[in-house]
């Protein structure tokens, strides 16, 4: 073996990565009769130990806690924006949601809607069915309290949220027609939990023209979000409503039963 060949494999030998026993024996045999190569091998073994020590001593170096906090915020925002990546979620309802002020509807649109309503009601009466339109203002809920508790100052939700995608349904603010045959008394039978925030910051302007989206989601998903549900039947689909601002960000979710 030449010294050049030895130099090529000395580090590998020192690291214990040289698998071939015959090669190991050749290297050791050369080092036994060649002082420079023996010193080279000793230096490599010493360096190996120093690198291990360095790795051990720096193994506890970690990023600042704020990195995790910001990622957690981003995780929640992502979760809200795309409730179940890889799993189907049925979007059952899109409800207009107006928090601070009455929804502004262009006059021409209101006129068209009113016209359509009259035509439809006449048609429905003629067919002997229940009128199926609900006036838009029944879906508008004026607020009684501040929209949101301000987030802690250390959180920078905007840093994590800009790429947040809208909930994968088109938000619609046009009058929505209820399918005929839908029971009329269902609203009174339903109860809803409190909203659980999905982000740490809220944009009041976005919420003012936001939308309430009804989803069917696996029960386990709501449990993971912190909603008070029994854990056992995680695969069962339950109704939930997500409050989505007009910027596409989902701000809160609640269970509807």
């Amino acid at each position: 073996m030449k010294c050049e060949d030895f130099a090529e494999l000395a580090a590998e030998l020192a690291d214990g990565r040289l698998q071939e026993v015959a090669a190991q024996q050749r290297l050791h045999a050369h080092a036994a009769v060649c002082l420079p190569c023996a010193r080279s091998l000793a230096a490599q073994e010493n360096l190996r130990q120093e690198l291990r020590t360095y790795a051990d001593w720096t193994a506890a170096e970690t990023a600042a806690p704020r990195v995790k906090q910001e990622l957690r915020t981003a995780f929640r925002a992502q979760l809200a924006a795309n409730i179940t990546p890889g799993e189907p979620v049925k979007v059952a309802t899109v409800l207009p949601f107006v928090a601070r002020k009455q929804q502004v509807v262009p006059r021409w649109l209101a006129a068209v809607a009113a016209g359509l309503a009259i035509v439809f009601m006449i048609g429905a009466l003629w067919l002997g069915r229940t009128p199926a339109l609900i006036a838009p203002d029944t879906a508008i809920v004026p607020p009684a309290a501040p929209l949101w508790t301000p987030p802690p100052p250390e959180f920078n939700a905007t840093a994590a949220a800009p790429e947040t995608k809208a909930v994968p349904v088109a938000t619609t603010r046009q009058p929505i027609r209820r399918r005929s045959g839908q029971p009329n008394a269902w609203q009174e039978r339903e109860t809803a939990s409190d909203f659980v925030p999905l982000t740490l910051a809220a944009d009041e302007r976005a919420l003012a023209n936001g939308t309430l989206v009804r989803l069917e989601v696996p029960r386990a998903r709501l449990v993971a979000l912190g909603l008070p549900l029994p854990v056992e039947s995680g695969r069962e689909m339950v109704n939930a409503e997500v409050m989505v601002g007009d910027n596409g960000v989902a701000y809160a979710i609640r269970l509807v039963q």
Binding site: A92, T93, V94, L95, F97, A99, R100, I134, T138, A139, I140, V141, P142, P143, A144, A145, P146, L147, W148, T149, I176, R177, R178, R179, Q182, W186, Q187, E188, E190, T191, A192, D194, F195, P197, A202, L212, R214, M243, Y251, A252, R254, V256
Partner: peptide, 21 residues
């Protein structure tokens, strides 16, 4: 399937109130 409903009708309290929970 599309439903329309007022949040106040169902929960008995405004949505914004729920948000402060």
């Amino acid at each position: 399937m599309v439903w329309l409903v007022s949040s106040t009708q169902r929960t008995g309290k405004p949505v914004a109130h729920c948000l402060t929970m």
